[in-house]
Design a protein around this nucleic acid. Structure first.
Lengths: 125, 125, 125, 125
DNA sequence: GTGGTCTAGACCACA
DNA sequence: GTGGTCTAGACCACA
């Protein structure tokens, strides 16, 4: 994992883990890497990971089982809801950019369709 | 203009101006606010605006007419090209988020369609 | 290091460092002086050095390893290429001066040969 | 005439005129453009031209014939000497760059020969 | 200790 | 009044 220099490292790692949870790479109920392990993996100070886990805990996506470590919440429906919110927010941010730059929605949707490799077209058939 | 705390002020202003140029609010050839004026407007130090304008100058979106001020480049085609690039990049970033969070493109496109208020559907008819 | 008054300080320092990199005084991969250290050394404000390093970073001659400091790019071939470009550009600027002042190239080359202390002649033998 | 933004305008115009004198475009004894005319031509404030002419006067390349205007010095030998000095200085500056960037003189001379379109080779034959 | 951002404000060139 | 450079120094993130 490489980091952008214009964003804080912990927020980049937080985003990364969030997406890992959403996509199921860290499944509901799964045990997360130990702080030290993840710190080594990310070549980052353990304090940074502490902060990452704190944030995810606050969002209730993970919880601490005191002696056993950190786990992804077992409430699958909650994760799904969070996932929807997350993507809705990303989509709205993108839509905002599009509008502010004076492009119309139609073209933006087409652009996105292209990026997804013509999936949209296939669908219509 | 309010600033987010997790992004640098100068990059937020840069983005803002870029979009103003793309959407035509600052038209090709138009004069931009004087450094000191924009600084007052944004309640920011003039040096911050210097940096913003330097960045836009480097991207060739604006240029300096020695003591007369800063102007949007008069090459309209160039601006259009930059606008396309900008939006392509935003669309790709969004698509990347979508994929990483394990959503399929189809759903992302639909989500975006909804946000744009059904413009897409109307059009097909 | 003394500064000429007709050129900006930051560009003089940038040029200086560039040549230090080209000649190998700062070798590929080597760590550069810390911003504050170089500022003290040059008796200049740290912000000026920030600007110098920013410029060299943009040219990809150096890079930042987050909190560890600044380093000369490890791509030696790239440096060599940049060095060639740099000298080509200087040579062309000199040639332009020569032509504009109405001297012919032949004489300019001879003049330069003299300055280099007859190395050229020795070599042919 | 376009101006670089990193050098003062008056010094750019001074250099320009100097070379015009050296190459004979403004011949020994010739009348120079009136301050106002040159100011208009260069799209520059007349004060800037005043400064330019002052500098050339100081270098004795031009003189003022009180009521009639400014003239290139009629001492042709003096101009020749100045020209040599000027080019010597440029050549030495170039040589200094070359050395500082760690290139050897041989290669610099060859590079220059190339730029002058193989004139050097012709000479040997 | 490392780099990055930002402020407040001086001083310069040019018009 | 326009932009550009520079200083002195604060404050932040990360290690």
């Amino acid at each position: 994992m490489d980091f952008k220099s214009n964003e804080t490292i912990y927020s980049q790692i937080t985003e990364y883990l969030k997406k890992q949870i959403f996509c199921g790479c860290f499944a509901s109920g799964a045990r997360l890497p130990a702080i030290r392990d993840l710190a080594v993996l990310c070549r980052v100070n353990p304090n940074t990971i502490v902060r990452v886990y704190a944030q995810l805990t606050e969002e209730k996506l993970i919880y601490t089982d005191s002696t056993n470590g950190k786990f992804v919440t077992s409430d699958g429906a909650f994760i799904l809801q969070k996932k929807r919110e997350y993507l809705k927010q990303k989509a709205e941010a993108f839509a905002k950019e599009v509008r502010e730059a004076g492009l119309d929605g139609k073209e933006a949707v087409r652009m996105l369709g292209e990026i997804f490799g013509g999936q949209e077209e296939k669908e219509r058939t």
